[in-house]
Computed example of a mutant assay.
Amino acid sequence: MTLKVLIADDDSGMRLVLKKVIKKIDGFQLVGEADNGLEALEMAESENPDVVFLDIEMPKLSGIECAKSIIDINPKTAIIFATAHEEYMGDAFELYAFDYLTKPFRLDRVYKTLRRIKDVNNKSNEEDNISEALDKLIIKNKDGISFVDTKDIILIQREDRSTVVYTKDQGYVTSESLTDLEEKLEGTTFLRSHKSYIINLSKIKRVTSYGRWTYSIEFTDTHRDALITHKKYKEIEKIFITGE
């Protein structure tokens, strides 16, 4: 698997150095470079990189603010700050930055960081394979991982810049995006009903009108509800009525 990399730094010399490092390590592909924070955010939205190198003091949008927006788009993005300013380190790690490189840094430090990212990604793929074999969903957070039986999951909801997986008795908070979890649950009884929800079709109790183009879903075993778009409602209507 090739990991996509974005570089954002207003120093063209630093961008050149990082580009050379990336080219020397197999498994990484440069998909864009930006000289300001706003351009970096636009590229992150269009390219969905796996790794982003960010300077902190950049024109138009700081690296910290840029990182906050990128993580909101895809919480699994590995953010690597590369900056001459040590004083922002606390802010960076509050965002769960993968690494913080203080300029001038040794190139072998960058190689080491990228290899760690590869190892983490490979381990993640192995865990996903284990999860499929056990019919469990692996939920990752800052404290570790939880193995949850997919049959016990009622809904998955995006809230407060995090994702929460709800069972009858518990809510599991993770930094993984809904899209990531949707891919893991592909081919099961789960459906992405709305940009903010994934639902377990086997747990639906009732569907009621919520607005002109939206419906509200009630579930068994929980007081929580979810939204479903008109298009997705028609899909489940077809499933339950015709069996297709």
Results as ranks from 00 to 15, higher is better:
Ala44Gln: 04
Leu61Phe: 02
Pro59Val: 02
Ile71Gln: 05
Phe81Gln: 04
Gly27Asn: 12
Ala82Lys: 11
Lys68Pro: 03
Pro59Gln: 02
Ala84His: 10
Asp26Ile: 06
Ala82Glu: 03
Asn36Thr: 04
Leu41Asn: 02
Lys68Gln: 06
Gly27Cys: 14
Asp35Cys: 12
Glu42Val: 09
Lys60Tyr: 07
Glu47Pro: 06
Gly27Leu: 13
Gln29Asn: 15
Phe81Tyr: 13
Pro59Gly: 02
Asn74Trp: 00
Asp72Lys: 14
Asp35Val: 13
Glu42Pro: 06
Val31Gln: 09
Ala82Asp: 06
Cys66Asp: 00
Glu33Arg: 08
Ser62Arg: 06
Lys68Leu: 02
Thr83Tyr: 07
Asp35Phe: 12
Glu57Val: 02
Ala40Cys: 12
Glu33Ile: 06
Asn48Phe: 11
Pro49Asp: 00
Ile80Thr: 07
Ile70Gly: 04
Ala82Pro: 11
Met43Asn: 08
Glu65Lys: 11
Pro75Phe: 06
Phe28Ile: 06
Pro59Ile: 00
Val31Ile: 14
Ile70Arg: 04
Leu30Ile: 11
Val31Trp: 10
Glu45Phe: 11
Ser46Ala: 12
Lys76Pro: 03
Ser62Gln: 01
Ser62Met: 01
Ala34Trp: 10
Gly37Glu: 03
Lys60Gly: 02
Ala82Val: 15
Ile70Phe: 05
Glu33Asn: 11
Ile64His: 04
Gln29Thr: 15
Glu39Phe: 10
Phe28Met: 08
Ser62Asn: 08
Ile79Ser: 07
Met43Ala: 09
Pro75Asp: 00
Glu57His: 10
Asp50Leu: 03
Lys60Asp: 01
Asp55Arg: 05
Ala44Tyr: 03
Val21Tyr: 13
Val51His: 08
Pro75Ala: 07
Ile56Met: 03
Glu86Trp: 06
His85Ala: 11
Leu54Met: 09
Gly37Val: 05
Ile22Ser: 13
His85Trp: 14
Asp26Gly: 15
Leu38Gln: 13
Ile80Gln: 07
Val31Arg: 12
Thr83Cys: 08
Glu33Lys: 11
Val52Asn: 01
His85Ser: 12
Met43Lys: 15
Asp72Cys: 06
Lys24Arg: 15
Phe53Cys: 01
Leu61Trp: 00
Pro49Thr: 02
Leu38Cys: 07
Ile80Ser: 08
Lys68Val: 01
Asp50Cys: 04
Leu61Ser: 01
Ile80His: 09
Ala78Trp: 07
Lys76His: 09
Ala82Gly: 10
Asp72Phe: 03
Glu33Tyr: 11
Ile71Asp: 00
Gly27Glu: 09
Val52Trp: 01
Ile64Trp: 05
Val51Thr: 04
Phe28Cys: 10
Leu30Phe: 11
Phe53Trp: 01
Ala67Arg: 07
Ala84Glu: 04
Val31Lys: 13
Gly27Tyr: 13
Ile70Met: 10
Glu47Met: 13
Phe28His: 10
Asp26Phe: 13
Glu42Gln: 14
Asp50Trp: 04
Gln29Arg: 15
Ile70Gln: 01
Val51Ser: 06
